[in-house]
Nucleic acid binder design. Structure first.
Lengths: 151, 151
DNA sequence: TATTGTTATACTCTATAACTATA
DNA sequence: TATAGTTATAGAGTATAACAATA
């Protein structure tokens, strides 16, 4: 195709955008979250809620604020999240023994079962998405690179 | 530290989450967008608006719907975006010659100047963020990997 | 019948400020 | 004074449905 016809065809030149890590990060994340939401629609949780569950599972007894900070969220956003997960019997608030202002968050037995099911689903989803990459070493490299860019 | 004290300290174990590409993508993107927004606060545009400008610059004459589709957005969301960029005299709507239902989008001269300034700012931001990586080859590899994960 | 731009609408996510009870 | 949880609220961002004009 001649350059003169460039404006008239229906292909798009992403130009600068294609070289911008910030933009490519966004597109990759959009794709992950869209398919993630499909995979999880029957379980009734979003990617954000799964993150809360995963952190409580690995860190039982932490306060809402501690979990929020670890996820980079505001503590006010945790209220509705914990309310929902408590209604689903996945996690529970227990009064902190050392500080009567705060609650400690724990998994329920139902929550442990749910987490087992959900994390298997997450890892299957991960495997499917990263199957386009060369090998496990490349996935590990990507994870390390993304961690480096997150600080 | 002994494992028994794990619950009591203030470090967080990210557990499974640290191995999940979807989560690490989100954290990296949050970091990029937060600093991007700082860098761009004086120019009055968001990352999303910059993407629209960049695409119009590389593809003058496209319709709103074509730009929206290329960005993965709904066309209804383009109305406010184009309204704003037109008010800022950055891009302009011109009646399409071949289809009276649609507008073709073009850069203004002001828009070209703006884009030059803005894209320099974006690339500086990119350079600062990716300076933590080993070299340019690693950045290129990351971009290619992210593209692979976006389809 | 289908598509473009548009409007209205709603829903999620996120952030801010203020309140209370504790520390 | 400062902090934890909460509430109310407001602002993005995003998606859906419907409409008029046009294809």
């Amino acid at each position: 195709m001649s350059p003169e016809n460039k404006d008239a065809d229906n292909t798009i030149d992403y130009g600068l955008l294609d070289k911008v890590v910030g933009y490519r990060l966004r597109r990759a994340q959009m794709n992950f979250f869209a398919t993630f939401s499909d995979v999880f629609s029957d379980l009734g949780i979003s990617p954000g809620l799964f993150a809360v569950i995963a952190l409580v599972e690995s860190n039982p007894g932490r306060t809402q604020t501690a979990i929020a900070q670890a996820l980079g969220n505001d503590r006010s956003a945790m209220v509705a999240a914990v309310d929902k997960l408590e209604n689903m019997k996945i996690i529970e608030r227990r009064p902190s023994k050392s500080d009567r202002r705060s609650y400690a968050l724990y998994m329920t037995q139902t929550g442990n079962d749910f987490f087992k099911t959900a994390s298997k689903r997450v890892m299957d989803h991960e495997k499917e998405m990263t199957s386009r990459l060369k090998d496990e070493k490349e996935v590990a490299w990507l994870l390390e690179t993304l961690r480096t860019l997150s600080d």
